[in-house]
Design a protein around this nucleic acid. Sequence first.
DNA 1: CCTGCCCTCAACCATTCGGTTGACGGGCGC
DNA 2: GCGCCCGTCAACCGAATGGTTGAGGGCAGG
Lengths: 206, 206
Amino acid sequence: MTVSVLLVDDHPVVRTGLRAVLDAGDGITIVGEAATGEEAITLTSHLNPDVVLCDLRLGEGIGGVETTAALRSLDPAPAVLILTTFDRDAEVFGAIEAGAAGYLLKEVAPEVIVEAIRQAARGGMYLTPDMSARVVQGMRNPLPKLTGRELEVLKLLATGATNREMARSLFVTEATIKSHLVHIFTKLGVDSRARAIHVAWETGLV
Amino acid sequence: MTVSVLLVDDHPVVRTGLRAVLDAGDGITIVGEAATGEEAITLTSHLNPDVVLCDLRLGEGIGGVETTAALRSLDPAPAVLILTTFDRDAEVFGAIEAGAAGYLLKEVAPEVIVEAIRQAARGGMYLTPDMSARVVQGMRNPLPKLTGRELEVLKLLATGATNREMARSLFVTEATIKSHLVHIFTKLGVDSRARAIHVAWETGLV
DNA sequence: CCTGCCCTCAACCATTCGGTTGACGGGCGC
DNA sequence: GCGCCCGTCAACCGAATGGTTGAGGGCAGG
Protein backbone atom coordinates (compact mmCIF):
# COMPACT_ATOMS: atom_id res chain seq x y z
CA MET A 1 0.00 0.00 0.00
CA THR A 2 1.28 3.40 -0.96
CA VAL A 3 1.50 6.49 1.20
CA SER A 4 -0.18 9.65 -0.05
CA VAL A 5 1.62 12.88 0.77
CA LEU A 6 0.72 16.55 0.59
CA LEU A 7 3.62 19.01 0.31
CA VAL A 8 3.36 22.36 2.06
CA ASP A 9 6.11 24.91 1.51
CA ASP A 10 6.06 28.48 0.33
CA HIS A 11 9.18 28.00 -1.79
CA PRO A 12 8.48 26.52 -5.24
CA VAL A 13 12.06 25.34 -5.46
CA VAL A 14 11.76 23.34 -2.28
CA ARG A 15 8.52 21.76 -3.40
CA THR A 16 10.19 20.73 -6.63
CA GLY A 17 13.08 19.29 -4.71
CA LEU A 18 10.83 17.33 -2.40
CA ARG A 19 8.86 16.04 -5.33
CA ALA A 20 12.04 14.78 -6.97
CA VAL A 21 13.30 13.25 -3.75
CA LEU A 22 10.05 11.54 -2.81
CA ASP A 23 9.28 10.27 -6.29
CA ALA A 24 12.50 8.31 -5.98
CA GLY A 25 11.17 6.65 -2.83
CA ASP A 26 9.03 3.57 -3.32
CA GLY A 27 5.48 3.58 -2.16
CA ILE A 28 5.09 7.33 -1.83
CA THR A 29 2.64 9.30 -3.92
CA ILE A 30 2.46 13.07 -3.85
CA VAL A 31 -1.18 13.98 -4.12
CA GLY A 32 -0.85 17.74 -3.94
CA GLU A 33 1.13 20.86 -3.11
CA ALA A 34 0.25 23.90 -1.07
CA ALA A 35 2.12 27.15 -0.59
CA THR A 36 0.26 28.42 2.48
CA GLY A 37 -1.27 26.99 5.61
CA GLU A 38 -4.80 27.88 4.54
CA GLU A 39 -4.29 26.14 1.23
CA ALA A 40 -2.91 23.12 3.05
CA ILE A 41 -6.03 22.82 5.20
CA THR A 42 -8.51 22.99 2.33
CA LEU A 43 -6.44 20.63 0.19
CA THR A 44 -6.12 18.17 3.03
CA SER A 45 -9.84 18.04 3.62
CA HIS A 46 -10.36 17.30 -0.08
CA LEU A 47 -7.47 14.96 -0.76
CA ASN A 48 -7.19 13.17 2.58
CA PRO A 49 -3.45 12.54 2.38
CA ASP A 50 -1.88 10.10 4.81
CA VAL A 51 0.95 12.48 5.58
CA VAL A 52 1.35 16.24 5.30
CA LEU A 53 4.94 17.38 4.94
CA CYS A 54 4.92 20.95 6.16
CA ASP A 55 7.35 23.82 6.47
CA LEU A 56 7.18 25.93 9.62
CA ARG A 57 7.57 29.34 8.02
CA LEU A 58 4.88 29.86 5.47
CA GLY A 59 5.23 33.44 4.39
CA GLU A 60 2.15 35.57 4.71
CA GLY A 61 -0.61 33.55 6.32
CA ILE A 62 -0.76 31.29 9.32
CA GLY A 63 2.37 29.50 10.47
CA GLY A 64 3.30 25.87 10.56
CA VAL A 65 2.32 25.33 14.18
CA GLU A 66 -1.18 26.69 13.66
CA THR A 67 -1.46 24.70 10.45
CA THR A 68 -0.43 21.54 12.26
CA ALA A 69 -3.02 22.08 14.96
CA ALA A 70 -5.74 22.71 12.37
CA LEU A 71 -4.79 19.65 10.34
CA ARG A 72 -4.73 17.42 13.40
CA SER A 73 -8.27 18.46 14.28
CA LEU A 74 -9.60 17.32 10.92
CA ASP A 75 -11.29 13.97 10.49
CA PRO A 76 -9.58 11.92 9.27
CA ALA A 77 -6.50 13.67 10.56
CA PRO A 78 -3.32 13.28 8.53
CA ALA A 79 0.04 12.71 10.16
CA VAL A 80 1.95 15.98 10.05
CA LEU A 81 5.70 16.02 9.51
CA ILE A 82 7.50 19.30 10.06
CA LEU A 83 10.40 19.95 7.69
CA THR A 84 12.07 23.26 8.16
CA THR A 85 15.26 25.25 8.28
CA PHE A 86 14.93 26.47 11.82
CA ASP A 87 15.42 24.83 15.13
CA ARG A 88 14.16 27.43 17.54
CA ASP A 89 13.08 25.67 20.69
CA ALA A 90 9.70 27.30 20.92
CA GLU A 91 8.84 26.17 17.42
CA VAL A 92 10.03 22.62 17.89
CA PHE A 93 8.05 22.20 21.07
CA GLY A 94 5.10 24.11 19.70
CA ALA A 95 4.91 21.86 16.66
CA ILE A 96 5.15 18.70 18.73
CA GLU A 97 2.55 19.91 21.18
CA ALA A 98 0.32 20.72 18.23
CA GLY A 99 0.47 17.07 17.24
CA ALA A 100 3.31 16.82 14.73
CA ALA A 101 4.57 13.31 14.07
CA GLY A 102 8.11 14.52 13.57
CA TYR A 103 10.42 17.46 13.14
CA LEU A 104 13.15 17.38 10.51
CA LEU A 105 15.65 20.00 9.48
CA LYS A 106 16.09 20.59 5.78
CA GLU A 107 19.74 19.75 6.04
CA VAL A 108 18.94 16.05 6.48
CA ALA A 109 19.59 13.55 3.73
CA PRO A 110 16.70 12.72 1.39
CA GLU A 111 16.50 9.13 2.63
CA VAL A 112 15.75 10.41 6.10
CA ILE A 113 12.74 12.28 4.82
CA VAL A 114 11.47 9.19 3.04
CA GLU A 115 11.95 7.11 6.16
CA ALA A 116 10.23 9.70 8.32
CA ILE A 117 7.23 9.71 6.01
CA ARG A 118 6.96 5.94 6.16
CA GLN A 119 7.18 6.09 9.93
CA ALA A 120 4.55 8.81 10.15
CA ALA A 121 2.20 6.93 7.83
CA ARG A 122 2.46 3.95 10.15
CA GLY A 123 1.28 6.20 12.94
CA GLY A 124 4.69 6.53 14.53
CA MET A 125 6.95 9.42 15.39
CA TYR A 126 10.20 10.32 13.74
CA LEU A 127 12.77 12.66 15.23
CA THR A 128 16.38 13.02 14.18
CA PRO A 129 18.75 12.17 17.05
CA ASP A 130 19.62 15.77 17.85
CA MET A 131 15.95 16.68 17.84
CA SER A 132 14.96 13.95 20.25
CA ALA A 133 17.86 14.95 22.45
CA ARG A 134 16.54 18.47 22.36
CA VAL A 135 13.07 17.31 23.25
CA VAL A 136 14.10 15.23 26.24
CA GLN A 137 16.24 18.09 27.45
CA GLY A 138 13.28 20.34 26.91
CA MET A 139 11.25 18.07 29.14
CA ARG A 140 13.87 18.28 31.84
CA ASN A 141 13.93 22.04 32.07
CA PRO A 142 10.85 23.03 30.18
CA LEU A 143 10.39 26.45 28.64
CA PRO A 144 8.96 28.70 31.30
CA LYS A 145 5.24 29.05 30.87
CA LEU A 146 4.55 32.75 30.59
CA THR A 147 1.01 33.91 31.10
CA GLY A 148 -0.80 35.66 28.29
CA ARG A 149 -0.15 39.07 29.67
CA GLU A 150 3.47 38.33 30.32
CA LEU A 151 3.92 37.20 26.75
CA GLU A 152 2.42 40.45 25.52
CA VAL A 153 4.85 42.38 27.66
CA LEU A 154 7.76 40.28 26.47
CA LYS A 155 6.89 40.90 22.86
CA LEU A 156 6.76 44.62 23.44
CA LEU A 157 9.97 44.37 25.38
CA ALA A 158 11.64 42.62 22.46
CA THR A 159 10.91 45.64 20.29
CA GLY A 160 12.93 47.76 22.69
CA ALA A 161 9.98 49.47 24.30
CA THR A 162 10.45 51.26 27.62
CA ASN A 163 8.26 50.59 30.63
CA ARG A 164 6.34 53.76 29.98
CA GLU A 165 5.65 52.81 26.38
CA MET A 166 4.57 49.32 27.29
CA ALA A 167 2.25 50.75 29.93
CA ARG A 168 0.66 53.00 27.32
CA SER A 169 0.33 50.18 24.80
CA LEU A 170 -1.38 47.87 27.25
CA PHE A 171 -3.41 50.56 29.02
CA VAL A 172 -1.98 49.87 32.45
CA THR A 173 0.36 51.72 34.77
CA GLU A 174 4.10 51.38 34.82
CA ALA A 175 3.82 49.63 38.16
CA THR A 176 1.93 46.83 36.47
CA ILE A 177 4.55 46.56 33.75
CA LYS A 178 7.30 46.39 36.32
CA SER A 179 5.39 43.69 38.11
CA HIS A 180 5.06 41.67 34.92
CA LEU A 181 8.72 42.22 34.13
CA VAL A 182 9.86 40.88 37.46
CA HIS A 183 7.81 37.74 36.87
CA ILE A 184 9.15 37.40 33.34
CA PHE A 185 12.73 37.80 34.51
CA THR A 186 12.45 35.18 37.19
CA LYS A 187 10.70 32.75 34.86
CA LEU A 188 13.34 33.23 32.20
CA GLY A 189 16.10 33.16 34.75
CA VAL A 190 17.58 36.52 33.77
CA ASP A 191 18.20 39.77 35.58
CA SER A 192 17.90 42.44 32.95
CA ARG A 193 15.60 43.41 30.14
CA ALA A 194 18.47 43.13 27.70
CA ARG A 195 19.03 39.49 28.55
CA ALA A 196 15.31 38.87 28.47
CA ILE A 197 15.24 40.20 24.92
CA HIS A 198 18.13 37.93 24.08
CA VAL A 199 16.50 34.73 25.32
CA ALA A 200 13.25 35.81 23.69
CA TRP A 201 15.00 35.85 20.34
CA GLU A 202 17.03 32.76 21.02
CA THR A 203 14.14 30.58 22.00
CA GLY A 204 11.85 31.98 19.37
CA LEU A 205 9.31 33.31 21.85
CA VAL A 206 9.13 36.51 19.87
CA MET B 1 26.32 28.74 -25.96
CA THR B 2 25.29 27.22 -22.68
CA VAL B 3 25.71 28.63 -19.21
CA SER B 4 27.57 26.51 -16.66
CA VAL B 5 26.27 26.76 -13.11
CA LEU B 6 27.54 25.64 -9.71
CA LEU B 7 24.92 25.11 -7.00
CA VAL B 8 25.80 26.00 -3.42
CA ASP B 9 23.31 25.18 -0.68
CA ASP B 10 23.59 23.20 2.51
CA HIS B 11 20.17 21.60 2.03
CA PRO B 12 20.21 18.54 -0.23
CA VAL B 13 16.53 18.98 -0.92
CA VAL B 14 17.03 22.49 -2.20
CA ARG B 15 19.90 21.40 -4.42
CA THR B 16 17.71 18.70 -5.88
CA GLY B 17 14.95 21.22 -6.46
CA LEU B 18 17.26 23.66 -8.17
CA ARG B 19 18.66 20.90 -10.33
CA ALA B 20 15.17 19.96 -11.44
CA VAL B 21 14.19 23.56 -12.06
CA LEU B 22 17.31 24.51 -13.97
CA ASP B 23 17.46 21.36 -16.04
CA ALA B 24 14.13 22.44 -17.42
CA GLY B 25 15.67 25.73 -18.54
CA ASP B 26 17.35 25.76 -21.93
CA GLY B 27 21.03 26.49 -22.19
CA ILE B 28 21.86 25.88 -18.55
CA THR B 29 24.21 23.15 -17.42
CA ILE B 30 24.83 22.34 -13.81
CA VAL B 31 28.48 21.46 -13.48
CA GLY B 32 28.59 20.82 -9.77
CA GLU B 33 27.11 21.11 -6.30
CA ALA B 34 28.60 22.28 -3.04
CA ALA B 35 27.20 22.19 0.47
CA THR B 36 29.60 24.65 2.09
CA GLY B 37 31.38 27.85 1.17
CA GLU B 38 34.78 26.23 1.30
CA GLU B 39 33.63 23.49 -1.02
CA ALA B 40 32.19 26.10 -3.36
CA ILE B 41 35.51 27.89 -3.62
CA THR B 42 37.57 24.82 -4.43
CA LEU B 43 34.99 23.53 -6.87
CA THR B 44 34.79 26.88 -8.59
CA SER B 45 38.52 27.06 -9.11
CA HIS B 46 38.42 23.61 -10.68
CA LEU B 47 35.24 23.80 -12.69
CA ASN B 48 35.21 27.48 -13.67
CA PRO B 49 31.44 27.85 -13.80
CA ASP B 50 29.95 30.94 -15.43
CA VAL B 51 27.54 31.43 -12.56
CA VAL B 52 27.53 30.32 -8.93
CA LEU B 53 24.08 30.10 -7.38
CA CYS B 54 24.67 30.46 -3.68
CA ASP B 55 22.64 30.35 -0.48
CA LEU B 56 23.48 32.89 2.19
CA ARG B 57 23.25 30.61 5.19
CA LEU B 58 25.60 27.73 4.76
CA GLY B 59 25.50 25.93 8.06
CA GLU B 60 28.82 25.37 9.75
CA GLY B 61 31.55 27.10 7.76
CA ILE B 62 31.86 30.51 6.18
CA GLY B 63 28.73 32.37 5.16
CA GLY B 64 27.41 33.39 1.79
CA VAL B 65 28.81 36.91 1.90
CA GLU B 66 32.33 35.71 2.61
CA THR B 67 31.95 33.03 -0.05
CA THR B 68 30.83 35.62 -2.55
CA ALA B 69 33.82 37.83 -1.82
CA ALA B 70 36.20 34.89 -2.15
CA LEU B 71 34.64 33.74 -5.41
CA ARG B 72 34.77 37.22 -6.89
CA SER B 73 38.47 37.45 -6.18
CA LEU B 74 39.20 34.32 -8.21
CA ASP B 75 40.43 34.50 -11.76
CA PRO B 76 38.35 33.97 -13.77
CA ALA B 77 35.69 35.17 -11.36
CA PRO B 78 32.23 33.63 -11.73
CA ALA B 79 29.08 35.69 -11.47
CA VAL B 80 27.56 35.05 -8.07
CA LEU B 81 23.81 34.91 -7.61
CA ILE B 82 22.47 34.89 -4.07
CA LEU B 83 19.38 32.76 -3.54
CA THR B 84 18.17 32.64 0.01
CA THR B 85 15.27 32.63 2.40
CA PHE B 86 16.21 35.73 4.32
CA ASP B 87 16.00 39.37 3.49
CA ARG B 88 17.87 40.96 6.34
CA ASP B 89 19.16 44.29 5.17
CA ALA B 90 22.70 43.76 6.33
CA GLU B 91 22.92 40.54 4.35
CA VAL B 92 21.43 41.95 1.19
CA PHE B 93 23.77 44.91 1.20
CA GLY B 94 26.69 42.81 2.31
CA ALA B 95 26.20 40.39 -0.54
CA ILE B 96 25.90 43.15 -3.11
CA GLU B 97 28.94 44.95 -1.78
CA ALA B 98 30.80 41.66 -1.96
CA GLY B 99 30.11 41.56 -5.67
CA ALA B 100 26.96 39.52 -6.05
CA ALA B 101 25.22 39.82 -9.40
CA GLY B 102 21.82 39.44 -7.85
CA TYR B 103 19.80 38.60 -4.77
CA LEU B 104 16.77 36.37 -5.03
CA LEU B 105 14.45 35.05 -2.37
CA LYS B 106 13.57 31.39 -2.54
CA GLU B 107 9.92 32.23 -2.77
CA VAL B 108 10.36 33.43 -6.36
CA ALA B 109 9.07 31.41 -9.29
CA PRO B 110 11.48 29.02 -10.99
CA GLU B 111 11.47 31.03 -14.22
CA VAL B 112 12.81 34.01 -12.34
CA ILE B 113 15.81 32.00 -11.23
CA VAL B 114 16.46 30.87 -14.78
CA GLU B 115 16.18 34.42 -16.04
CA ALA B 116 18.47 35.72 -13.32
CA ILE B 117 21.11 33.15 -14.22
CA ARG B 118 20.97 34.16 -17.88
CA GLN B 119 21.28 37.78 -16.90
CA ALA B 120 24.21 37.08 -14.59
CA ALA B 121 26.00 35.03 -17.24
CA ARG B 122 25.71 37.99 -19.58
CA GLY B 123 27.52 40.03 -16.97
CA GLY B 124 24.41 41.86 -15.83
CA MET B 125 22.62 42.28 -12.52
CA TYR B 126 19.30 40.82 -11.54
CA LEU B 127 17.24 42.02 -8.62
CA THR B 128 13.59 41.33 -7.99
CA PRO B 129 11.57 44.54 -7.85
CA ASP B 130 11.23 44.57 -4.08
CA MET B 131 14.94 43.95 -3.70
CA SER B 132 15.95 46.80 -5.97
CA ALA B 133 13.51 49.02 -4.11
CA ARG B 134 15.20 47.94 -0.91
CA VAL B 135 18.61 48.70 -2.34
CA VAL B 136 17.76 52.19 -3.55
CA GLN B 137 16.14 52.92 -0.22
CA GLY B 138 19.24 51.55 1.45
CA MET B 139 21.30 54.01 -0.55
CA ARG B 140 19.11 56.86 0.62
CA ASN B 141 19.52 56.18 4.31
CA PRO B 142 22.43 53.79 4.41
CA LEU B 143 23.09 51.43 7.28
CA PRO B 144 25.09 53.29 9.85
CA LYS B 145 28.74 52.40 9.56
CA LEU B 146 29.82 51.16 12.95
CA THR B 147 33.51 50.96 13.68
CA GLY B 148 35.06 47.62 14.49
CA ARG B 149 35.02 48.22 18.20
CA GLU B 150 31.46 49.47 18.14
CA LEU B 151 30.40 46.33 16.35
CA GLU B 152 32.06 44.21 19.00
CA VAL B 153 30.19 46.10 21.68
CA LEU B 154 26.93 45.80 19.81
CA LYS B 155 27.31 42.05 19.50
CA LEU B 156 27.94 41.74 23.21
CA LEU B 157 25.04 44.06 23.85
CA ALA B 158 22.79 41.83 21.77
CA THR B 159 23.52 38.95 24.12
CA GLY B 160 22.12 41.02 26.96
CA ALA B 161 25.45 41.84 28.55
CA THR B 162 25.66 44.69 31.05
CA ASN B 163 28.20 47.49 30.72
CA ARG B 164 30.32 45.90 33.40
CA GLU B 165 30.36 42.56 31.61
CA MET B 166 31.18 44.11 28.27
CA ALA B 167 33.99 46.01 29.91
CA ARG B 168 35.43 42.78 31.29
CA SER B 169 35.05 40.96 27.98
CA LEU B 170 36.84 43.66 26.03
CA PHE B 171 39.40 44.49 28.73
CA VAL B 172 38.43 48.13 29.01
CA THR B 173 36.68 50.23 31.62
CA GLU B 174 32.98 50.81 31.82
CA ALA B 175 33.58 54.39 30.81
CA THR B 176 34.87 53.19 27.47
CA ILE B 177 31.86 50.96 27.00
CA LYS B 178 29.52 53.82 27.77
CA SER B 179 31.37 55.95 25.28
CA HIS B 180 30.97 53.30 22.59
CA LEU B 181 27.32 52.84 23.47
CA VAL B 182 26.54 56.51 23.05
CA HIS B 183 28.10 56.44 19.60
CA ILE B 184 26.24 53.25 18.70
CA PHE B 185 22.93 54.70 19.86
CA THR B 186 23.30 57.88 17.88
CA LYS B 187 24.40 56.00 14.76
CA LEU B 188 21.48 53.60 15.03
CA GLY B 189 19.11 56.40 15.90
CA VAL B 190 17.91 54.84 19.13
CA ASP B 191 17.89 55.92 22.74
CA SER B 192 18.12 52.72 24.73
CA ARG B 193 20.08 49.50 24.72
CA ALA B 194 16.87 47.56 24.35
CA ARG B 195 16.04 49.29 21.10
CA ALA B 196 19.62 48.92 19.94
CA ILE B 197 19.32 45.17 20.45
CA HIS B 198 16.11 45.24 18.49
CA VAL B 199 17.54 46.98 15.44
CA ALA B 200 20.61 44.78 15.66
CA TRP B 201 18.40 41.73 15.24
CA GLU B 202 16.16 43.37 12.68
CA THR B 203 18.90 44.49 10.36
CA GLY B 204 20.92 41.36 10.84
CA LEU B 205 23.94 43.14 12.27
CA VAL B 206 24.22 40.44 14.86
C1' DC C 1 -17.25 28.73 49.37
C1' DC C 2 -12.58 28.99 49.55
C1' DT C 3 -8.07 28.59 47.58
C1' DG C 4 -4.98 29.73 44.11
C1' DC C 5 -3.60 32.16 40.18
C1' DC C 6 -3.67 36.16 37.24
C1' DC C 7 -3.81 41.01 36.65
C1' DT C 8 -3.65 45.21 38.65
C1' DC C 9 -1.41 49.00 41.39
C1' DA C 10 1.62 51.47 45.05
C1' DA C 11 5.73 52.98 47.62
C1' DC C 12 10.41 52.55 48.36
C1' DC C 13 15.42 51.87 47.45
C1' DA C 14 19.89 50.80 45.29
C1' DT C 15 21.78 50.19 40.99
C1' DT C 16 22.28 50.84 36.39
C1' DC C 17 21.82 53.42 32.41
C1' DG C 18 21.71 57.49 29.08
C1' DG C 19 23.85 61.83 28.10
C1' DT C 20 27.25 65.34 28.56
C1' DT C 21 31.69 67.39 28.60
C1' DG C 22 36.26 66.92 28.43
C1' DA C 23 40.62 64.74 27.85
C1' DC C 24 44.77 61.84 26.05
C1' DG C 25 47.42 58.95 22.74
C1' DG C 26 47.84 56.74 18.29
C1' DG C 27 47.36 55.95 13.53
C1' DC C 28 46.34 57.58 8.86
C1' DG C 29 46.07 60.72 5.04
C1' DC C 30 47.27 65.09 3.00
C1' DG D 1 53.67 68.21 10.52
C1' DC D 2 48.72 68.82 11.07
C1' DG D 3 44.12 67.41 11.32
C1' DC D 4 40.89 63.80 11.89
C1' DC D 5 38.99 59.79 13.53
C1' DC D 6 39.28 55.92 16.63
C1' DG D 7 39.77 54.07 21.02
C1' DT D 8 40.54 54.86 25.67
C1' DC D 9 39.11 56.95 30.20
C1' DA D 10 36.94 60.26 33.88
C1' DA D 11 33.38 62.80 36.50
C1' DC D 12 28.92 64.13 36.88
C1' DC D 13 23.77 64.28 36.64
C1' DG D 14 18.98 62.99 35.99
C1' DA D 15 16.20 59.36 34.57
C1' DA D 16 15.10 54.65 33.99
C1' DT D 17 15.44 50.22 35.66
C1' DG D 18 15.58 45.99 39.01
C1' DG D 19 13.95 44.24 43.35
C1' DT D 20 11.15 44.30 47.34
C1' DT D 21 6.90 44.17 50.00
C1' DG D 22 2.32 44.55 50.12
C1' DA D 23 -2.40 44.66 48.64
C1' DG D 24 -6.94 44.47 46.19
C1' DG D 25 -10.23 42.33 42.73
C1' DG D 26 -11.63 38.77 39.59
C1' DC D 27 -12.18 34.29 38.05
C1' DA D 28 -11.71 29.21 37.66
C1' DG D 29 -11.51 24.82 39.96
C1' DG D 30 -11.89 22.02 43.62
